[in-house]
Write a protein that binds this DNA or RNA. Structure first.
Lengths: 211, 211
DNA sequence: CCCCGCATTATCCATTTGGCTAATAGTAGA
DNA sequence: TCTACTATTAGCCAAATGGATAATGCGGGG
């Protein structure tokens, strides 16, 4: 028996074999959904999107060859009508913000219950954004602090590495005073008392990914 | 057609609905495997293990009400013949070490390919330990540094919070000198140049879990 | 054109940190 | 019992940090 609507074409991008299997199983509960493509890395995700033109894409944030955010940005640039749902374990506000800014149509945690996942996909297919309340709340807490400047984003990872102001100055080619100024600004913006707490906060918020 | 062996009874413990679905799908490829129980938190994992007595249990490391390591410890204490495979995204040596020390029969990353997962389950069923080479390597790198003492384990989280030696001393009721001594020892054991790097290393190695 | 934010440099100063060394006491194991 | 490790305390010292303040130059927006 054919469905009224043509089946919704889905692509799944995740490097976890077992999770992909879970997604396919959950999605197969709906006979109007069809997983027409899969990818386990960013490069093939971009390539297969162009080839298969899925209606909605489920994308992991971390992939072996880069981030799902970069893949999302590339796909959305090339295909402005792309509907991409991020599906990840990372709940830091920075990751959420960057994903949406890259063009994602939604941001779900991998702990999402099946029915909510299906609802999010339907919403994305209709061209709507689906953001669960918990995720939305994370984003709003963020507003408290200002955006980081480009320089601050360069300095932050170096602080996390345990480098001193002098080391940082040497690497970025400015004086120790400048390094100090940027670190002071980072402390203020992220609400940290010292650089030790700065690391904890930056990791928690997804500004830095350790590994 | 009945299999020669009685079906191997499996329990799956993970709070991610989609991942559980994936596990069940992958495991159902083997008709001599049967998922007889599921749990999505530590407490019900312990309770259901006792009730269903599975042959092999697949256990996530992080659960809503605690850690899979604690659940593993409880189950292995009550049932010394339990075979529990940790299945997690955390690859820090401390998590691996603690899981094995708690009695786990193996430690797999969630990116495990299907066939390797099945092999690990078979090994666990035979009473063997299955540790993938990459995980084993992590454990061996660990040997470089000594174990942390109890005091050091108390001090570390406070350092990560951004507290000063004086603050730490106040909380743990000893002098600033003592705090300093423990921090110095932590820096040496974890190979960090300062407390900033200490945080990064502690998080990376799974000694501390943020959030 | 003026204001604002940013990057950069700079000074002063109190506090904190990290390295080195050392003593005492308790405890567990050889 | 002797040893090793740990916890605790302590002092000295150079270096790094964080707070407060300020000046300069640059670019964008009103």
């Amino acid at each position: 028996m054919p469905t009224f609507d043509p089946p919704l074409k889905l692509m799944v991008v995740d490097d976890h074999f077992v999770f992909r299997a879970g997604l396919k199983t959950v999605l197969s509960l709906r006979n109007d959904f069809a997983v027409i493509a899969e990818a386990d890395n960013a490069a093939s995700a971009v390539e297969r999107y162009a080839r298969h033109q899925p209606d909605v894409t489920l994308m992991d944030l971390r992939l072996p060859d880069g981030t799902g955010i970069e893949a999302t940005r590339q796909i959305c640039t090339a295909h402005p009508d792309a509907r991409i749902l991020m599906l990840t374990t990372y709940d830091g506000d920075e990751d959420i913000h960057r994903a949406l800014e890259a063009g994602a149509a939604g941001y779900l945690l991998k702990s999402v219950p099946g029915p909510e996942l299906l609802r999010a996909i339907e919403a994305a297919a209709r061209g709507e954004r689906y953001i669960p309340p918990a995720v939305q709340q994370r984003l709003e807490e963020r507003a408290t602090f200002g955006e980081l400047t480009d320089r601050e984003r360069e300095v932050l990872p170096l602080v996390v590495k345990g480098l001193t102001n002098r080391d940082i100055a040497g690497i970025l080619n400015f004086t120790e005073f400048t390094a100090k100024a940027h670190v002071r600004s980072l402390l203020a913006k992220l609400g940290a008392a010292d650089r030790t707490e700065l690391v904890a906060i930056a990791v928690q918020r997804g500004l830095i990914h350790l590994d």
